[in-house]
Structure formats: C-alpha cells, structure tokens
C-alpha cells in the first residue's frame, strides 16, 4: 500500500509537470496579449512594452516556464495580472468553497445513487425501479446550468425556502447547509444517476451469484444478505464509477459556481481565462489536476480495501 502511495506521488509529479507545460504553452501561444488587456485600450506601444518587461513576458517562453516552476516548487504560483494578488492566496481563500461543494455533491451522489440503485435491483421492475431508472436517465441528460436555474426558480424564488446563491457561511451551520443544498444537488445529480445505474446493474448480477445463495443457505438474514454480502461485492465496480465521476464533478463546479454565484476555484479560473490572467489560470488548472490524481489514489486505496483479490505489491 505504501508502495502504491509512493508510486502515485511520482506519477502526480510527472503529471503536474506535463500539465503545467501544456497549460503554460497554450496560454502563451493562444491569441490575446495580456499586456494589451492590462494596459487597456488607451495604452501606447511603449506602455505595453513596459508592462511586458515588468511581467517578464518578453523573455523566451521556456525561460518564463522555468522561472514559473521555480516559484511553484516553493508554493509561489505568481501574481494575478489583474489584481496583483498572490495566486496562492487567491486559491487558498476560494478553495474551501469549491471543496465543500464537491464533497457535498459527492455525498449526495453516492448516498442517493447507491441506495436507489440497490433498491431498484432488489425490487426489479417495481414502480420504484421504473421511476428511479427513468429519473436516472433524465438526470444524466439534464445540463447542470438548467437544473441549477430550475432549482433556484422553484426552491428559492417561488417557495423562498433556500437562498438564491452565495456560499459564505461555514458548512456546519444551518445557514451554510442551506446555501450548499441546491448547488450540491445540481452538481451531484448526474453522478447520482450514473452511480444508481451502475449499482443497479452490478447488484442484479451479484444477487444471482452462487455466494449469495450460499449466504442464504447458511441462514443469513435477508437484510444482511443484501446490505452486507451483496453490497460489498456490488460496490467494487461502483467505486471506479465514483472515482471517474469525481473528475467530471470537479469540472462541473465551474458551471455550478457560476449559476449559484459561489466564489470558488471554478469562477477564479473562468475569470482568469477571460482576462488572459496567465498565473491564475495555470495555478487553478494545476490544482484541479492535482486533486484529480489524489482522488484517483484514494479510489485505488478504497478499492484494495474492499476487494481482497487486489494487491498492489
């Protein structure tokens, strides 16, 4: 297990170097001059030259890249062209919002997805099964921004139960939870649907297997047959789905944060892209990539804990 973690750590390093290089290059090669944006429409050519000089943009791209990476290893992601704020600091203030949103969505997705999938499977072809598979199909196809807008319309504007947007109260307070509910549902629905479908199909397979018959032949209570003997096996492929979904969920935070006016990494990234704020874009992309790898590591570890046949020796 330790070997796996060490190996993954090196993978993470290589991946981050690769991603940083790609992001760095594509930002610098893409049309749009940050100096022009910073200087504004009235800036003269010599003003812009001075800005480039100041930001180090006139050095060769590779030299700029190495300068940047030198900072990164020390935890310095550079300064925003727009606000002059340290990117590291900007990320640190916004990260908790995105993190809470992602975790809350994942909890929504896993709890609803697994429970609905399992009940669907053990009550195959019941009204519950039919409605849950139909809702799951809809859940996968509905775009996030539409679902988010509809939820706001119904629960915030019409019913007035929940706030329209924003995320500033701590998540453990009632206010914080109220703020988190709609974004978490918006972001978690597609994953919940995917997890429900996967749980249902693997559960259907597992309950027909020989070892489930063995468990019943031993006199195991039906509840334990399903929620212990079968669930543990059915979860093995579902864990992979959860891991993959966490990746797309991280991407989904961008839109969800826009819809619910949440000041998170996604908005930081979008604003950065719009204003050619290279350091901000690079910093946020690197963070998301790192998160992705870390989540996959966690998935691998959980996988090995659930399935004894897997060993990472």
């Amino acid at each position: 297990m330790l070997g796996l973690i060490v190996r993954r750590f090196f993978q993470l390093l290589i991946l981050l170097i690769g991603i940083s290089l790609i992001v760095f290059m594509s930002m610098h090669l893409a049309p749009g001059d940050p100096a022009a944006i910073i200087g504004g429409p009235t800036a003269s050519e010599s003003d812009m030259e001075a800005i480039r000089e100041d930001l180090g943009l006139n050095k060769p791209v590779l030299v700029q890249y190495f300068d940047y990476m030198k900072g990164v290893v020390q935890g310095d992601l550079g300064y925003s062209y727009q606000t002059n704020q340290a990117v590291t600091a900007a990320i640190i203030t916004r990260f908790p919002n995105t993190f809470n949103l992602a975790i809350a969505s994942m909890i929504v997705a896993v709890v609803i997805g697994v429970i609905a999938g399992i009940i669907s499977a053990i009550k195959q072809n019941s009204w519950f099964d039919l409605s849950s598979t139909t809702i799951a199909l809809a859940g996968i196809s509905i775009p996030n921004f539409w679902l988010g807008s509809m939820l706001i319309l119904v629960f915030s504007v019409t019913l007035g139960w929940l706030p329209v947007g924003g995320l500033n109260a701590p998540f453990y307070t009632l206010e914080g939870m109220k703020q988190l509910i709609l974004p978490a549902i918006t972001l978690g629905t597609a994953s919940a649907a995917m997890i429900a479908r996967m749980s249902r199909s693997t559960m259907l397979e597992v309950v027909r297997s020989d070892y489930i018959r063995t468990a019943r032949a031993k006199g195991v209570k039906e509840k334990s047959v399903i929620w212990l003997h079968a669930l543990r096996n059915a979860m093995i492929p579902v864990i992979t789905v959860i891991g993959v979904n966490f990746g797309s969920l991280l991407g989904g935070t961008i839109i969800t944060e826009q819809v619910f006016a949440i000041n998170g990494i996604g908005r930081l990234m979008i604003d950065g892209i719009a204003s050619r704020d290279f350091p901000v874009v690079q910093g946020t992309v690197l963070l998301v990539a790192a998160l992705f790898v870390i989540v996959n590591l966690i998935v691998d570890i959980v996988y090995a804990m659930v399935d004894p046949r897997i060993s990472y020796e």
Binding site: D210, Y211, R213, A217, D307, P308
Partner: peptide
C-alpha cells in the same frame, strides 16, 4: 437453514464470498 439442514453446491470456486 445452516442449522438443522445445510446445503453444499457444485461450484466451489464461486460458492464462497470473495470479499470475506
């Protein structure tokens, strides 16, 4: 079941639960 009457099956390879 498993108490006063028990059963064993044909396929020993799949009759035991792999995760316990």
């Amino acid at each position: 079941r498993g108490n006063r009457m028990s059963m064993i099956f044909q396929e020993p390879m799949t009759a035991l639960n792999p995760v316990f």
